[in-house]
Each structure stands twice: as structure tokens, then as C-alpha cells.
């Protein structure tokens, strides 16, 4: 069963990107690209070879491979549909967050390795955002750990679903707010970064992968799709109260909830303007503030 869950994650992740694009297209009055477009793109890119610049070292080639494998390993740790995740042990949340960090670190290194000034700019911005996003994620997770008294992802989500909502909903709302901002940042979604822009001066994530092509680009596209899924399921697992109707029904509800999340992200992208680049750290500081508040409230407790 757990193996099937992992396969579901790996197979369904690119589908969500199609949902977002269709939502955006609908609100723009366009027809939009097919809902399975990312699958076609990845297939097309996998058939191609890669062209490498003469200035690069092994770091550039390792970049996409390491980040994709880090993200897939993180997917093994994330629970799905109320079930225990494939790999689950005490303290796996720290491994989870650092795997995401490792993936980002190698993307940044690969970008710097090209020697292009635009990629250096993108790398600098990505790291600047991560400086605020990572502590925010850590502190929100710390608040969840304080709340539940458990230190593995599966147990945390299970306990939250069963007992914490009634008593500690203010804390959970704060945590959700912080994690949602981090989620948008990490997946380079609209208030922070525009996935569709191709103007080098304003790109953040896209500019870092500008010099990758062929198989490498396929890895990167697929990696960001899986990353969207795992961080999204972080949010969905907190909100969704699993009923344990049966394995199949649970999974189906979870997948539906993920689709709704993708739809909400599409809505946000259609109606929110992108923030000015200088304002983005401010948004992330808001996330940090929310997570600190949540953590403090768990220490103080309610009556």
C-alpha cells in the first residue's frame, strides 16, 4: 500500500500544474494548454540530449540530479491520505526540511557554476528568500511539535486531525498562514515569483534554470512538480480530517483536496498582483512573525 502511495505521488504531481494552468486560463478567458501538458513536456525533454557550456564543472551536471533525488526522498517522508508515510521515524521532519534545503542548495550552486551574471542574480534572490522562508517553516513545524508532542510527520498529522483542532485552532490557523506563504515562495508562485515570466531582470527561480536543457530541464520541471505536491500535502494534511472510510476512499479524498489546493493557487495567481521584488522579504517576514506567534502561543497555552 505504501509503495502504491509513493507511485501515486510520483505519477500525479505534474497533473496539479495542469490544474493551475487551466484555472488561470479560464479566468483570463483563454482555452489554455492541455491539462496533461507537463507530462508531454517532460516526455519531450527526456528524449533530447543536453548541451553543456565549456565553463561548467561537475557541479552543474550534478545540480538537477541531486535536487530531484532530494525532493523524491522528501516525498518518501510525507504522509498521504491519513496513512503512515513510507519512511517514518522520530525526527524525520528535520530530515524533510533539510532535504528541501539540499535541493535548493544544489540548484543555486549549479546556477552559480554557469558563470552567467543573470543566474548569479537569480541565485542571490533565491537564497535571500530562503533565509526567511526556512526559519518560518522550521518554527511552524516546531509549533506543531509543541502542540502534538510528537516528532514524526505521520504522527503529528494524525494527532492534529484527532484532537488539536477543537482546542488549539488559533495556533493552527497561524501555522497554516505561515506555511502557505512558505509554500508559495518555495514553489515560486505568484506573489513572490512568476513562473511564466521570461524577463531576466524579474525572474527568480526560472532564471536559475535558464542554462539547463534536455534531460536536466526535465528533471528540474519534474522536481518542482513533486515539490509542489509534497509541500501542498503538508497543508492539506493539516486541514483535512481523514475519516478512515477505507484505503481507496481516503486516497481519493486526499487527491481531490490536492486538486482543490491547486485550484486555489490558480485563483490566487489570477487575482493577486505579483509583489515588487523589494517587498517580497517583507511578506516572508510576515510568515516568520506568524510562526513565531504560533510557537509562543503553544508555550503559553490556553485555558
Amino acid at each position: 500500500m505504501k509503495i502504491i502511495q509513493i507511485i501515486l505521488i510520483l505519477v500525479l504531481s505534474p497533473f496539479l500544474s495542469g490544474v493551475i494552468n487551466r484555472t488561470k486560463a479560464f479566468f483570463c478567458g483563454r482555452k489554455g494548454s492541455p491539462i496533461f501538458q507537463l507530462y508531454y513536456d517532460i516526455y519531450k525533454l527526456l528524449l533530447k540530449g543536453a548541451v553543456y557550456s565549456s565553463t561548467i564543472t561537475w557541479v552543474f551536471i550534478a545540480g538537477p540530479i541531486v535536487s530531484l533525488s532530494a525532493i523524491i526522498l522528501a516525498a518518501f517522508l510525507i504522509p498521504f491520505g491519513g496513512e503512515v508515510s513510507l519512511i517514518s521515524f522520530n525526527g524525520d521532519i528535520i530530515l524533510f526540511i533539510y532535504l528541501l534545503g539540499l535541493g535548493r542548495f544544489f540548484t543555486v550552486l549549479a546556477a552559480l557554476d554557469t558563470g552567467s551574471s543573470f543566474e548569479g542574480m537569480g541565485a542571490s534572490r533565491e537564497v535571500q528568500f530562503a533565509v526567511f522562508a526556512e526559519p518560518a517553516l522550521f518554527l511552524s513545524v516546531a509549533a506543531l511539535v509543541r502542540l502534538t508532542g510528537k516528532i514524526s510527520l505521520s504522527e503529528i498529522f494524525d494527532t492534529i486531525n484527532n484532537s488539536c483542532w477543537a482546542e488549539y485552532s488559533p495556533v493552527i490557523f497561524l501555522v497554516l498562514g505561515a506555511i502557505f506563504i512558505v509554500f508559495l515562495t518555495e514553489n515560486s508562485r505568484i506573489p513572490v515569483d512568476d513562473p511564466n515570466t521570461h524577463l531576466e531582470l524579474t525572474m527568480v527561480h526560472e532564471v536559475m534554470v535558464l542554462d539547463h536543457c534536455g534531460v536536466d530541464l526535465a528533471y528540474i520541471c519534474y522536481g518542482s512538480a513533486v515539490k509542489f505536491w509534497i509541500l501542498g500535502s503538508f497543508i492539506v494534511s493539516i486541514i483535512l480530517k481523514t475519516k478512515h472510510i477505507g484505503w481507496g476512499a481516503d486516497q481519493l479524498i486526499f487527491i481531490l483536496a490536492m486538486t482543490v489546493l491547486a485550484f486555489i493557487v490558480g485563483l490566487a495567481e489570477s487575482f493577486l498582483p505579483r509583489l515588487r521584488l523589494l517587498k517580497v522579504p517583507h511578506l516572508l517576514i510576515v510568515a516568520l512573525a506568524l510562526s513565531i506567534l504560533a510557537l509562543t502561543l503553544t508555550f503559553r497555552g490556553f485555558k
Binding site: S169, P170, F173, L174
Partner: peptide
């Protein structure tokens, strides 16, 4: 009503 008051205070 304890929950509501907590929500308001937060």
C-alpha cells in the same frame, strides 16, 4: 465560547 474568545484575542 473559550475558543471564540481565543480566536478574537489572536
Amino acid at each position: 465560547m473559550i475558543l471564540l474568545i481565543d480566536l478574537i484575542i489572536v
